[in-house]
Every structure is written in C-alpha cells, then in structure tokens.
Design a protein around this nucleic acid. Structure first.
Lengths: 246, 246
DNA sequence: GGCGGGTCTTGATCTCGATCAATGACCAGA
DNA sequence: TCTGGTCATTGATCGAGATCAAGACCCGCC
C-alpha cells in the first residue's frame, strides 16, 4: 500500500534526473534545490489541485501520470495537458492554479516551494534554460494536439493518442519479442474522450473498430497490443515520417 | 506602396519595445541586439516561411498579423498560432521551421540572426527570462484554444475568436463614443475557419446568425461593431469573469 | 464599362459523432 | 455468494456542422 519505496533517496537515484527541470543542474545547484523540495504521493483518481487553488509549490512528476483539465460552467471538460514522468507542474510567478490537476495513476511528485524556486530561476540560469526548453516542447505538443482536435476524425484521434502514449513512455514499454508492442493505457475511456474532444461512447466504438480491423488487440480493457506500429501510424493521418518536428 | 516608413528608427521608437522579447533588455543589451537585427516587410497574403525551410533567424512581429498553420497530406489545415505585434517567431536551437508562417495583413518583422541570438540567450539572462514568460503565455493561450477546438459549439467558437481579437489588439481599437466597439478582422473567413476547426461556410453562417441576433453588426465584410461587449462574452461559453487565468 | 478572380453568403442534403438507453464485465466489500 | 458500484461496450436515433452547389458582391484591370 505504501508507495514510499518509489521515492528516490538522492537526486542521483532519481529516475527523471536527466530529463526534468533539474536536468542541467550542477551538484551545488542540486543541493540548493534539495533544500526546498519535498515528495508527495497520490493515489490513482485523486485530485492534486483544483483550478483557482492557491499554489505554494511547483513540481515535477517523478512517476505515474497526471492530467491537466479545463471545465466549462455546464460541465463540458477538455484535457489540456497529459503529464508523464519528468513533466513540470505549475507556473513560476503565478500564485493560483489555472487548471485542475488529477492523478490518473498512482503518482509521485517532487515539489519545490514556489518562492525559493522563483529566486533560483533568476539566480541560476540552468534552471531557467531547461524550463524554457521544456516549455517550448510543450508548446509544440500543444500545437500537434490542436491539429488533432480541430481536423482529425475520431478514428485518427484514437490512433494518434495511442501512438503518442506509446512514444512518450517508450522506455517503460513491454516488448514481446520482435514486432508486437504492448503497453497499458494510463487513462479511462472518459479521460481519453476528454483528451480527444470526443464522447466516451465514440472512444469505445473506435477502439472496437481498430480492434476489428486488426490494427490493435486488447488484453483486458487497458492493455493494448500493437502488432504493426507502421499500420497504427497510417491510421493517425500524420505524414509518413511521423509528422514530427524537424 | 513602400512600407518603410513603419520601420522604427531606433528601439526607443519601437511600438513593441516594452512587450517583445527585448522588453527586459538594458541599453547595452539592446545595442548588442541591434548589431544582429534587420527589418523585413511582407504584403498581406504573402508566405513568410514554409514548414521544413531552413531558418537562420528568429523574429518579432512589429506590426501586422501573421499565422502559424499545419497542413495534413490531404490538405486539411489547422491554424496553431495567431501572431500579433510583439509576438515571437521561430525557436532558438531549431534550424528548420516546424510550421507554415503567413502574413495575413501587411507586416513588418524585426529579425535576429539565429546563431548570435542563441549566444545572447545564454549570456544575457534578460532575454531568456522574457522569452520564458512569453512562451508560458503562449502555452496558456494554446490551452484555451484547445478547449475551444475540443468542446465549443460553432457559435461559441466565433464569439470567442471575436473577443480574443478584440482583447489582443485593444490598444489599436477604434472606440466610437461610449459603448460600441469597432475593429477590423485581420483574417479571411477561410483563415477564421482554420483557426476554429470549422469550414468557411459554417463561419459565414454563424457570423450571419450573430448579426441577426444583434450580438454584432457588420460594416462591409471585415469591420465588426460590438454594441455590447458583455453580450458577446456571454456567447463565448466562458465563465462570466472571462475564464481568464488567475 | 465590362470582364475575371477572389471573397463571401445562402440553400439543400448528407454524415459523423453526440445523445439516450440498455447491458455486460469486473471487483471490493458485506 | 451475493450486491452495489465503476468502467466499458453496443444499439438506436438525432442533429450540428460538413459537403455540394449556386449566386452575390467587390475591386482591379484591360
């Protein structure tokens, strides 16, 4: 039950050491960060922050998956961020949260008290430089996502989401021999719908359709098997070369 | 015909001096920037950059409006950025353009040669700090945009776009007496459709509907008159307080 | 002053995904 | 073992926006 074993003893042991906001830090900078940081764990489904909450910290996702969502007055919900290990939560200089943040799997965060973090942002350039890189990457991802939301069909949206999740946690992915790739969806059908701008029924139908057509196979509800990754890519509507950024 | 008169003589005269990437620069930093900069003008409709092009500069929009768009193989197009004066074009460290950039009005850009700009980014923290702020703002805007694309109705999308354009160039806006606000759309119906993830026919129909319902009035095709801004805001689907970021 | 092309509007019809509704699968707890 | 709850699937029908099509408006140009 206790997830404390997943919390790294030192930054050197940290699974996101080389990809998170601290990636460029020297050991003296890490020591300074160490003094203002603490770990926090959440269970799958638990709310981390509500939009409008006061936020006295910023954080990195150490393990697990969280989502950023916006909700309209009448309840319509859109996911606007999918946070995987090493991703950053919060905005320096902003005291109130702008989005709802929810853990969709069990999750560990490495939190930094906001004020001292902001001071370090000014004083130690490595953190600001890394945060700029990460923010530019997120902006690129947001722009791909906008193309998906505005112009892709439901089937293309599902195929795109599957390939995005596969790519983003490629390191954690289970490989079965040569070809087929296996991974677990960290999202419910409803969360997938909120990501894609669809209803959960349409998500379910399109997953069934992709299964019928042999593009994917299922093991239980959450485990996806992709026998041929190129076949999945063709269904995304992206360019053959992945439509990825040059 | 010659737009050269719109090019500022010195940075002190520059209309975007206090909002662009150079906003935090001291005079010595401005001098360094000055040595690597040049102005470039474009006519309405002209392509500035194609996705995949080599880009040996980054730039600020000085005056006019440009768009960032992505196009799928079959021609489906989605706008992913609307660049108004002071907005930044290009990504430090990236030699190839990721998006098509097009001038939708006559436009002046202040370009910086990329390599020396990247050097300054490392050496003078003010530029990197400002670029980080601007990028975080763009990311917030992209997330609002995702909510619009994924969950808003066609009518809400149009109302949202109108209020976004009004807000963003509020400074340039023509005020007629007290209440009614007047502004010119810097986009064709087709560009609006690409912004909103709609067809141009639907854009046209919804604009007509908002006109019929008295939410807006038209003067020609491009000039919009808003008799009551609150009425327009109600049509956007956003929270009463603008749904804006805390 | 009429012609041609770009831009915009409006109408008729179709279709994809939403909505409404029922059922199934799975699991934790009584 | 049964029960209630969450999550997912599938079917029937509806409707917002896409698509196809026809004109209107506007402006520069020969």
């Amino acid at each position: 039950m206790n997830e404390i074993s997943l919390i790294p003893d030192t930054c050197a042991d940290c699974p996101i050491r080389h990809r998170a906001v601290c990636a460029k830090c020297e050991s003296d900078e890490l020591e300074r960060l160490d003094a203002i940081k603490y770990y926090k764990s959440f269970k799958a489904g638990q709310a981390i922050i509500w939009s409008g909450d006061e936020m006295d910290f910023v954080a990195s996702v150490v393990s697990g998956v969280a989502t950023l969502t916006q909700t309209m007055e009448d309840g319509r919900t859109q996911m606007v961020g999918l946070l995987l290990p090493s991703d950053f939560i919060g905005r320096p200089g902003r005291p109130l949260a702008s989005y709802d943040v929810t853990a969709t799997t069990d999750l560990v965060m490495c939190c930094f008290r906001r004020k001292p973090f902001e001071d370090m942002l000014v004083e130690t350039p490595h953190i600001g430089q890394r945060l700029l890189e990460m923010t530019l990457d997120e902006l690129d991802a947001a722009r791909e996502w906008m193309l998906l939301l505005g112009r892709k069909t439901a089937r293309e949206k599902i195929a795109s989401l599957l390939s995005i999740i596969m790519r983003r946690d490629a390191s954690l992915m289970l490989k079965t021999g040569q070809g087929p790739l296996v991974f677990d969806l960290p999202l419910t059908r409803e969360a997938m719908a909120d990501y894609l701008g669809l209803t959960l029924e349409t998500v379910s139908r399109q997953i069934s359709a992709l299964r019928r057509d042999g593009v994917i196979a299922l093991e239980g509800k959450r485990r996806i098997i992709v026998p041929d990754f190129d076949l999945l890519l063709e269904e995304t509507g992206d360019d053959a070369d992945g439509g990825m950024l040059a």
